[in-house]
Amino acid sequence: MIAPAMASASESPSSELVARERSGHTAVVEGNLLYVWGGYMSIADDEVFLPSDEIWVYDLERSVWEVFHMSGEVPPSMSGTCGCLLNGHLYIFGGCDNNGQTNQIYCVDLTDGKYTWKKINYDIGSAPSHRDKLSCWVYKGKIIYFGGYGHKLLSNVDRTNRSFIIDKASWVEEVFWGWNNEVHMFDPMQASWSQPQTHGRTPDPRAAHASATIGKRGYICGGRVMETRTSDIHCLDLESWTWSEIMPGSSIPVGRSWHSLTAVSDSSVFLFGGLSVDCKPMSDGWLLDVETKIWREVEHPFKNKPRLWHTACPSKDSDVIVFGGSCDYILLIDNSHCNDALVFQTQPYPLFRICEDYIAKNVRNNETLRNQLSLLPPKLLTAVQRRMSYYRPSKRLKY
């Protein structure tokens, strides 16, 4: 069983504050800030949960970490929770703590600087069963959850529709663990749970898959389905609640779990990393055009940095910020968790971004640029000054 980590915030050798390494955590980007919460790490021979009353904040423009204390109805320390950003609030649901999987939902306002947790008590409907390693989509102010691994009472398992596949290796008397393919929706405004009736062919029950939202469609990719790992892609229309499977042509990524899928345009998603069918950590990146249904493997500078059970957040200019995760098979090897952030450029940058980055990179070693900084328009000058902090050699994020 994983125990809570009680150590204080760590610092780098240069005394600059850095977030601790972790896997199974939650991360979101709001504006220019990356927020990181929860997960677990290895200390000596133990795996420990990270404190649930702290949140790490990374300024993506200045390359500066800060850690803040959280108060209120603080959730337990856990990993595998499903987190998302909605109207400036971080919502988390499910996860695994020292007592096993949970089915509680919490939220915290990320915009007021107070970081006060609130446990949400719903008035309508029933919450999903206890689970972790699930995913979600955000659409029209609601959060739609899919899948995950967890437990149910035998009396609540419907064996006729295969919405819950029992893990034969795990059960205790009348309690069964397994994978599900259920769709549940939470409405924060009404504090209500509902279970939409879906149509079409539902994907197989799974956990440790990845999801992304484009327009009115929610996509899922891969994950662990019983004893195998898949690379299939399914789409749920979030208005008609109709499932469809995307059947890509040409080359496709190998089956995997614990990977990430991030929307980077109106028609494409970016897949990175994960654990392959033969339990190898992956470092490959792929773009899927959901209109043409074609996968394309992309070159990137992080081929030597495999990651699994990391987070991947969309940022400005279609960048994808990958943080943390494990660089090896976490069920077999300890001390393999990471705390670096990798920035993937998935689309060509606009001219303003190109100019901003060029000046910030070169101004320290170019006297002519330094002397002309004051001539820049105010907006560009402010942006360049922030990026100059980012490009300090000891602090910059990895591109």
Rank of each mutant, 00 (worst) to 15 (best):
Y390W: 12
S10E: 13
H130R: 07
P314Y: 04
D357E: 15
R307D: 01
G147W: 05
Y391A: 06
V29E: 04
F49P: 15
A44Q: 15
I2P: 09
S14I: 08
M6W: 12
D284A: 09
E356M: 13
G31T: 07
T311F: 03
P350T: 15
D319G: 05
L287S: 12
D328M: 06
L275I: 00
E299S: 13
H209V: 01
I359K: 13
T160N: 06
H130T: 00
L110T: 10
L60F: 09
L332Q: 11
L86T: 07
E245Q: 15
E297P: 12
V18K: 14
D132V: 05
F344P: 11
G255E: 00
R392C: 11
H130E: 02
D334C: 05
S135I: 04
V28D: 00
A360I: 01
L261A: 07
E291N: 14
L86N: 06
G38F: 05
L332R: 15
C82N: 09
R396G: 10
M185E: 15
D340I: 10
A360K: 03
D289K: 07
V225L: 00
V322L: 05
G113C: 03
A191G: 11
Y149S: 06
V343R: 14
L288G: 14
Y58S: 01
S268G: 07
L342W: 03
P377V: 06
G222Q: 03
L275C: 09
V384K: 08
N335P: 05
D284K: 07
S77I: 08
G94F: 13
K140V: 00
L33E: 12
P306E: 01
H89E: 01
G200M: 02
A27K: 13
L85W: 14
Q197E: 11
E21P: 05
C235T: 11
I124T: 13
F272E: 00
T213D: 03
D167Y: 03
L34F: 09
V384R: 05
W177S: 10
H310F: 11
P393R: 04
D237I: 06
G215D: 02
W193Y: 02
T242A: 06
C338N: 08
P196W: 01
F302P: 14
A44L: 13
L238E: 01
E66A: 11
G274C: 02
E291M: 14
N98Y: 13
L351E: 12
S315A: 15
R396P: 07
S79T: 13
T228F: 07
